[in-house]
Every structure is written in structure tokens, then in C-alpha cells.
């Protein structure tokens, strides 16, 4: 029933943790092929959970999830062939890199996915080498992941997913806890991947990067429901909406003797300089 262009479709998803703490309450949305979609919302609104559902890691209490025209269920993922097919096509970069890098060395970490896909050894080694080169972490190959810095761990985590060449890339809070340079690098990478035809879904509450990272935004309320959808500029312009979902807050400033209230938003206060240029470049392309 989902149309061909709609790569991922979720319908009326309901999910709660331990059967008590709701995370998704009747969420419906879809992602088209080659699109960049941002899931927007305050902490704890359910966007990470939705990503986990999309990656087939947790399964909804109610509702359906279709990927590549087929419904994804726990039973179906038990099937070896379906599992392999689905896992190679969807990659997930977790917010906590510490959870994602668990192998004894960086090289093994990156080889983990392809090896699980029963890929030929020599091919795996070649791919791992390419990926290391591409992300500029070749010199880290024999280090243990726990010895790396936060930014390096993120690169390793991304490499470990990219090496499988997935069609869809899911990012959970991609720029969180990264220094400005790494943030910039990651944003450029995401744009590059999108240009290469990858479908991108990312969860974020970083409004400053939206115009670069997303073609479309899906806004979650703190009641775990989708409240709005649209292009980043429309969403960013709707102050009342952003206020209501707690993505921005009212702030009092003192300018000399004058006290004034204004809506405070992260992106507007320290927006990285090159961002608008990058966006302009892309639209020009």
C-alpha cells in the first residue's frame, strides 16, 4: 500500500517503555527516497524511539511499519534473508558512540557489519580500508576504541555503518557532544551522503543546523505525537509552535536600562559562520 517513492512509512505507532512510560502515541509519517528528514522535538519526546523502530530494533505496541514496500515485524526479522537485506539497507548511528564501538580494535569494529553479512574476507578488508581512508581515521585502525576521543569515536561509529553502504542512514543527535570543527565536518558529510543519493533521517533539537541538514521537518510534541510537518524555514518561522513543543524558551534580557523579552533560540545566538554559504552552495548546485 505505500507508494514506491515512500521508502519508509510508519502508521499509528504506539510504544511505551516497560509498558508504563509512553514514548510514541499514534505517530504516522513517511520518508521518501533520497530525502533528508529531521525529527524535531525536546528531550524525551520519542524521536530516538521512532528511529529505533525504523531500524527494527524495537517493535511498536500498536501500529505498522513498512520499509522498502514490505512490513517490518519481529517475526520477519528472524528470517535470515530478510534480516540481512534489511540490515544492509538501513544503518543507524547512535547518539552514544560508546555503545556503538564495542570491538577490540577500530579495524574490527568497522569489519563487524560486513562480516555479519557474510561478505568475502578480502572484500571486507578492502572496504574497511576504503572507509578508514574516506573518514580520515586510517591511522587509528589498530587502536582500541576506548582510547579514542569523542570526535574520533563518532567517526569510527559512522565508518562502521557506512562500510555496509546502506540506502537509509539514521542519525540520532548527530552533532551532540561534538566540538564545532567535528560538527562542521559531520554536517558536510551528511550533505555529501545525501547528494550521493542516500536517504537521511535524523533526530535533533539543534535548530541552527536544520536548514542545511533537512529538506523536511517532523515536529514532535512532549506528548509523543506529531504536531507539525514542513520545510525547515516554515517550521523555524513558526515561533508559537516551537515554543509549544519546548524547543525554544522565552528569555529576559537586559540591554542597558531596558528590559526586553525575546524568544531565545540556540541557532540564532551562535550560528556557525559558514552555514549559510554551504546552504546557498547546495541550492545553487
Amino acid at each position: 500500500m505505500p507508494s514506491d517513492a515512500e521508502l519508509l512509512v510508519v502508521k499509528d505507532l504506539t510504544y511505551s517503555y516497560l509498558g508504563r512510560f509512553p514514548a510514541l502515541d499514534g505517530v504516522s509519517m513517511s520518508v521518501r527516497r533520497g530525502e533528508k528528514v529531521a525529527l524535531l522535538g525536546a528531550n524525551g519526546c520519542g524521536k530516538s524511539t521512532l528511529l529505533k523502530v525504523i531500524d527494527g530494533l524495537v517493535f511498536p505496541d500498536a501500529g505498522n511499519y513498512f520499509a522498502f514496500g514490505e512490513e517490518v515485524t519481529e517475526d520477519k526479522l528472524e528470517d535470515r534473508q530478510f534480516n540481512e537485506g534489511f540490515r544492509t539497507r538501513v544503518g543507524f548511528i547512535f547518539q552514544n558512540s560508546d555503545a556503538q564501538v564495542f570491538s577490540p580494535t577500530v579495524r574490527e569494529e568497522i569489519a563487524f557489519g560486513p562480516l555479519n553479512m557474510a561478505m568475502d574476507r578480502r572484500q571486507v578488508e578492502a572496504r574497511v580500508a576504503d572507509t578508514l581512508e574516506m573518514l580520515g581515521i586510517a591511522e587509528l585502525a589498530d587502536r582500541a576504541p576506548y582510547q579514542l576521543s569523542g570526535g574520533q569515536k563518532k567517526r569510527v561509529a559512522i565508518a562502521s555503518v557506512l562500510v555496509m553502504n546502506p540506502e537509509v542512514l539514521l542519525f540520532d543527535e548527530p552533532t551532540a557532544a561534538l566540538d564545532p570543527r567535528s560538527q562542521q565536518w559531520l554536517m558536510e558529510l551528511i550533505v555529501e551522503l545525501s547528494d550521493a543519493g542516500k536517504t537521511i533521517v535524523l533526530a535533533t533539537h539543534d535548530l541552527g543546523t536544520l536548514d542545511v541538514l533537512a529538506d523536511r521537518c517532523v515536529v514532535f510534541s512532549e506528548r509523543h505525537q506529531v504536531v507539525a510537518e514542513g520545510p525547515p524555514n516554515d517550521i523555524l518561522a513558526d515561533r508559537d509552535l516551537l515554543l509549544s513543543v519546548n524547543l525554544i524558551h522565552e528569555h529576559t534580557h537586559l540591554h542597558g536600562d531596558l528590559a526586553h523579552h525575546h524568544v531565545h533560540e540556540i541557532g540564532h545566538h551562535h550560528e556557525p559562520e559558514p552555514l549559510p554559504d554551504l546552504a546557498a552552495e547546495r541550492t545553487a548546485r
Binding site: D55, N83, E84, R87, D98, A99, E108, L115, N116, V161
Partner: peptide
């Protein structure tokens, strides 16, 4: 953490067999 690690493993096709490149 262990739940997350498990998910990260499953996400990359882990089904209970460990394979190594060595």
C-alpha cells in the same frame, strides 16, 4: 548500556555469531 550495545550490534546484522577478521 548493554541494551544499547546490543541494539548497535543487531543494527549491523548481528544474529548471535561472532566473526572476526584476524
Amino acid at each position: 548500556l548493554s541494551e544499547e550495545v546490543y541494539m548497535a550490534m543487531v543494527s549491523r546484522g548481528y544474529t548471535g555469531n561472532a566473526v572476526s577478521i584476524d
